[in-house]
Deep mutational scan, measured.
Amino acid sequence: DVEEQIRRLEEVLKKNQPVTWNGTTYTDPNEIKKVIEELRKSM
Protein backbone atom coordinates (compact mmCIF):
# COMPACT_ATOMS: atom_id res chain seq x y z
CA ASP A 1 0.00 0.00 0.00
CA VAL A 2 1.60 3.24 -1.19
CA GLU A 3 0.00 5.43 1.50
CA GLU A 4 1.42 3.14 4.19
CA GLN A 5 4.88 3.35 2.61
CA ILE A 6 4.66 7.15 2.54
CA ARG A 7 3.63 7.20 6.21
CA ARG A 8 6.58 5.00 7.16
CA LEU A 9 9.02 7.18 5.22
CA GLU A 10 7.64 10.32 6.88
CA GLU A 11 8.11 8.73 10.32
CA VAL A 12 11.75 7.95 9.50
CA LEU A 13 12.16 11.50 8.19
CA LYS A 14 10.89 12.96 11.51
CA LYS A 15 13.38 10.84 13.46
CA ASN A 16 16.21 11.96 11.16
CA GLN A 17 17.24 8.37 10.43
CA PRO A 18 18.60 6.92 7.21
CA VAL A 19 16.16 4.90 5.14
CA THR A 20 16.86 2.11 2.67
CA TRP A 21 14.56 2.20 -0.33
CA ASN A 22 14.81 -0.22 -3.27
CA GLY A 23 18.36 -1.13 -2.28
CA THR A 24 19.54 2.49 -1.91
CA THR A 25 20.20 4.03 1.50
CA TYR A 26 19.20 7.66 1.83
CA THR A 27 20.60 9.72 4.70
CA ASP A 28 19.76 13.18 3.34
CA PRO A 29 16.27 14.34 4.37
CA ASN A 30 15.89 16.07 0.99
CA GLU A 31 16.51 12.77 -0.80
CA ILE A 32 13.91 11.05 1.39
CA LYS A 33 11.43 13.83 0.55
CA LYS A 34 12.07 13.19 -3.16
CA VAL A 35 11.27 9.50 -2.67
CA ILE A 36 8.02 10.48 -0.91
CA GLU A 37 7.15 12.84 -3.79
CA GLU A 38 7.75 10.08 -6.35
CA LEU A 39 5.50 7.72 -4.38
CA ARG A 40 2.74 10.35 -4.23
CA LYS A 41 2.95 10.85 -8.00
CA SER A 42 2.69 7.10 -8.56
CA MET A 43 -0.58 6.85 -6.62
Rank of each mutant, 00 (worst) to 15 (best):
P29A: 09
M43L: 14
Q5D: 11
I32N: 00
R7E: 07
L13N: 02
N16F: 12
Q5G: 05
E38N: 11
N16D: 06
Q5Y: 06
V19P: 09
Q17K: 07
V35E: 02
R7I: 07
R8K: 15
K41E: 11
V2K: 05
L39P: 00
W21N: 08
E10L: 08
E31V: 06
T20N: 15
S42G: 09
N30I: 12
E11F: 02
E37L: 07
Q17L: 15
S42A: 14
T20A: 07
K34V: 09
E10G: 03
N30R: 11
R8Q: 14
Y26C: 01
L9S: 00
E11I: 07
E11K: 04
G23S: 02
D1Y: 12
Y26R: 00
T24K: 11
K41Q: 13
R7F: 04
V19Q: 02
T20S: 15
P18Q: 10
L39W: 03
K14D: 10
E37Q: 10
W21L: 15
E38R: 10
K33V: 09
N16L: 03
S42C: 11
M43E: 05
K14N: 11
P29T: 05
I36V: 06
N16G: 15
E4T: 10
G23H: 02
P18A: 09
E31M: 07
V12R: 13
S42E: 10
D1H: 11
I36M: 04
P29I: 06
G23Q: 02
V2L: 12
I6V: 06
M43K: 09
L9W: 03
N22P: 05
D1P: 10
V2R: 05
Q17I: 14
R7G: 04
P18I: 11
K41H: 08
V35R: 02
K33D: 04
K33L: 12
V19C: 07
T27M: 07
L13D: 01
R40C: 04
Y26S: 01
K34W: 08
T25L: 13
V12D: 14
N30L: 13
N22T: 02
E4F: 07
Q17T: 09
P18W: 04
K14I: 10
T20F: 15
G23K: 01
T24A: 08
E38W: 11
E4C: 10
K15V: 07
T27S: 09
S42T: 14
K34E: 06
Q17D: 07
W21V: 15
I36N: 00
V35S: 01
T24N: 09
E38Q: 13
P18N: 12
K14V: 12
Y26P: 01
R8D: 06
R40Y: 11
E38F: 10
K15S: 15
T25W: 10
P18T: 14
N30P: 03
I6N: 00
W21K: 07
K15I: 07
P29E: 06
L39I: 07
T27D: 11
E3I: 13
E37A: 12
K34H: 09
T24G: 03
L39N: 00
R7S: 07
N16Y: 03
K41C: 07
M43A: 10
D28A: 03
T27N: 08
T25C: 08
R40P: 00
P18C: 14
N22F: 14
S42P: 04
K15Q: 13
L13S: 05
K14Y: 09
I6Q: 01
T24I: 15
W21C: 14
L39K: 01
G23V: 00
I6K: 01
K33Q: 13
L39T: 01
P29K: 05
P18G: 11
E10Y: 04
K33T: 06
I36K: 00
E11P: 01
K34S: 08
T27W: 10
T25Q: 04
L13T: 04
E3V: 13
E11C: 10
K14E: 12
R40W: 06
V2F: 10
I36C: 02
E3A: 12
Q5E: 10
V2S: 05
K14L: 13
P18S: 13
E3T: 09
R40G: 03
K33E: 09
E10S: 05
E31G: 03
W21R: 11
E11W: 02
L9F: 10
S42N: 11
N16P: 05
Q5A: 13
K41F: 06
L39G: 00
E38I: 11
D1A: 11
T24R: 07
V2Y: 07
K15C: 11
E11R: 04
L9N: 00
V2N: 05
W21T: 11
Y26Q: 01
I36L: 10
T20V: 15
I6W: 03
Q17P: 05
V19I: 12
Q17F: 15
Q5C: 07
V35M: 07
E31S: 06
V19M: 05
T24C: 12
R8A: 13
P29C: 05
W21E: 07
T25E: 13
R40F: 05
D1G: 11
I32W: 02
E37Y: 04
K15D: 07
I36E: 00
S42Q: 13
G23N: 04
D1I: 10
D1K: 10
T27R: 04
N22M: 09
M43W: 04
N30D: 14
I36G: 00
S42D: 06
E38G: 11
V19N: 03
P18K: 14
Q5K: 06
N22K: 05
K14G: 08
W21Q: 10
I6P: 00
E37G: 05
K34N: 06
P29G: 04
R7H: 08
E3S: 10
L9Q: 00
E4P: 03
P29N: 04
M43P: 05
T25S: 04
V35D: 01
S42I: 11
P18M: 07
N16Q: 10
W21F: 14
T20I: 15
K14A: 15
T25G: 02
I36H: 01
R40V: 06
D28M: 02
E4G: 10
V12N: 15
K33A: 13
Y26F: 09
V19Y: 07
Q5H: 08
K41R: 11
G23P: 03
L39R: 00
E4A: 11
